[in-house]
Amino acid sequence: MTDEQTPLQIVEAEIEKTCKIARRKRDEVTLIAVSKTHPPQRIVPLLEQGQRVFGENRVQEAQDKWPALREQYPDVELHLIGQLQSNKAEDAVALFDYIHAVDRPSLVKALAKAMDKASRKVPCFIQVNIGAEEQKGGCAIADVSTLIEQVRSADIPLAGLMCIPPFDTEPAPFFAMLDKLARDNGLDGESDQEGGGLSMGMSSDYATAIMLGATHVRVGTALFGARG
């Protein structure tokens, strides 16, 4: 690291290097800058450096800060990466370009209704509880196939699968498991077209995720620093 390098440049260089090692093209991986809990004045420097894809955990927080930012930067792509309550489906469909945590039939129904009402189709990832952790969201591995069919039947664009591996555990086996789940269900893990996206990897493990097929990495701390 040199004094001239910004956190974004460091992360971008690591993604570029990892893609070369994995024999993948750089444009196969989308960097989502996780801006949750950070105020607009912390986000603007990344926008000024050219970053255009951002992730938020909560609908209300995103509503509070992104409409004004989007007036200045209308080409921003916004991803909802946190859990979504069904009663917030309409707000989420209105604001976000991707939704990453679809994990139950009731949410599929709420999103389908909201998309029909808004005449706007928002691609969605199915979140898989890859470590079978009771405290985490995500559908059970055994339910993935059924939920995929429900999403498709509801005419919701399927972006792919998403996971968050157990904390303080080697993530590679879980990333590999998500990739296998995608392939077992006929999803092409090499692109985010027609359900082949793999949203996995965060600040501590995004390089590992890219090696194992990630198409979207969700990076917060490495770009913004630790949250206070």
Rank of each mutant, 00 (worst) to 15 (best):
A62T: 04
L107Y: 00
L46G: 06
G137V: 05
V59H: 00
L69Q: 02
K17C: 10
Q63S: 11
M1H: 13
T221H: 06
P165T: 10
A140N: 09
L80Q: 00
A132E: 15
G195V: 03
E28S: 15
D27H: 14
V144Q: 07
A132D: 15
A112W: 00
F54G: 01
Q63D: 10
K88T: 05
L78H: 02
R227V: 13
P105C: 04
Y206Q: 13
F174H: 05
I32R: 00
D179F: 05
A207S: 14
I15W: 08
D103L: 06
Y98I: 01
L47P: 12
F174E: 00
Q85S: 08
E12D: 14
A110I: 01
Q49Y: 13
G82A: 03
D27Q: 12
T146L: 13
L158C: 06
V34Y: 04
N129S: 09
M177L: 15
D75E: 15
I164Q: 00
C124F: 09
A176Y: 07
A89C: 02
E77T: 15
E28Y: 04
M1R: 12
D184Q: 14
I148P: 03
V151I: 14
F175Q: 01
E48D: 15
R58Q: 11
V93A: 02
F54A: 01
A101C: 15
A159P: 03
K36V: 11
Q49C: 12
E4N: 13
Q150V: 05
L147W: 05
A140T: 08
D75P: 11
H100E: 09
R58G: 05
K109Q: 10
R227N: 10
L31Q: 04
M211F: 07
I141W: 03
L161I: 15
I43N: 01
M1W: 11
V108W: 00
Q85W: 09
A118Q: 15
E134D: 14
G195F: 01
T30Y: 05
L178C: 11
A207F: 04
P39G: 10
K109V: 04
M211D: 06
A214Q: 04
Q83M: 11
K136D: 02
D97V: 02
S119G: 10
P171R: 05
I126V: 14
I21L: 15
Q9K: 08
L181T: 10
T215F: 02
A142M: 13
